[in-house]
Amino acid sequence: MSYDYEKSIRPGKLPHIWCPGCGHGIVMKGLIRAMDTCGLDRTNTAIVSGIGCASRLPGYLDACTLHTAHGRAAAFATGVKMAKPSMNVIVCGGDGDGTAIGGNHFIHACRRNIDMTYVVMNNFIYGMTGGQFSPCTPTGAKASTTPYGNPDPVFDISKLAIGAGATFVARTTAAHPREIDKLITMGIKHKGMAIIEVLDDCPTTYGRRNKFRSVVDMMKHLKANAVPAVAAAKMTAEQLQGKFLTGVLFQEERPEYTAQYAEVIKRAQGA
């Protein structure tokens, strides 16, 4: 049975700009299914992004969409949510956008625990500008600006989000499409800051420089190294070498920011 994605896509906006084999489309489909599952009213849903390949996603979706400046999505989204707390707010973007130029906004949005769902498509590279290394490019990997191998240590986005105070943090990969919408759905239903990190592939600027002979190879790599967090609990450090944990990594209940601010309004008004 085929899923009706078209009712969620703006007429005339396809084909998308992504390269053949790019995982962003898989994530977009997952997001559409999650929004449908949650029954989000699209006229009351803002989808906010920054700059980069992943940040072009909102333009395809039928909703209130806001394609902002590089790295600033979380800050714009915070303004939307603060000024109109009744809106559903979804943020999407890439690893460089969210954790390098947007790193400050990312951690503070997590800290506030403001109610939004941020889908980070982590394809380990700056794709749109042609493959420069990002804070998520594996150490030693080749990028257009690391011709001798990447000397930089790597940001673990999910750990960063947990450390900064996000109250729902989950990770999956583009090779696990069913888990994408399951986790985004949980994120949307969660009251507070939800970070969904989707490990993604960029065959054009990352794969071909790093000995991935095909998109299939990249997908196999994501599949082979993903370890559900539940299973990881029973594995040794040695067995977990080079693997990444998937599924819900962290979840807690903590007062949500706009709900807290509603209390501020009550106090200011003498209630």
Binding site: V48, C64, L66, T68, A69, R72, A75, F76, A77, T78, G79, V80, K81, M82, A83, K84, M87, N104, H105, I107, H108, Y261, V264, I265, R267, A268, Q269
Partner: peptide, 30 residues
């Protein structure tokens, strides 16, 4: 907050400008 509006102190100047634009897009004078 007395007039039902909202105030936020952001993490930096850039974020403040971003939030103001986002807020204004919901119709709030920002």
């Amino acid at each position: 907050p007395k007039v039902g509006g909202s105030f936020i102190q952001m993490e930096d100047e850039i974020a403040a400008m971003a939030a103001v634009i986002g807020g204004s897009l919901t119709g709030a004078k920002s």
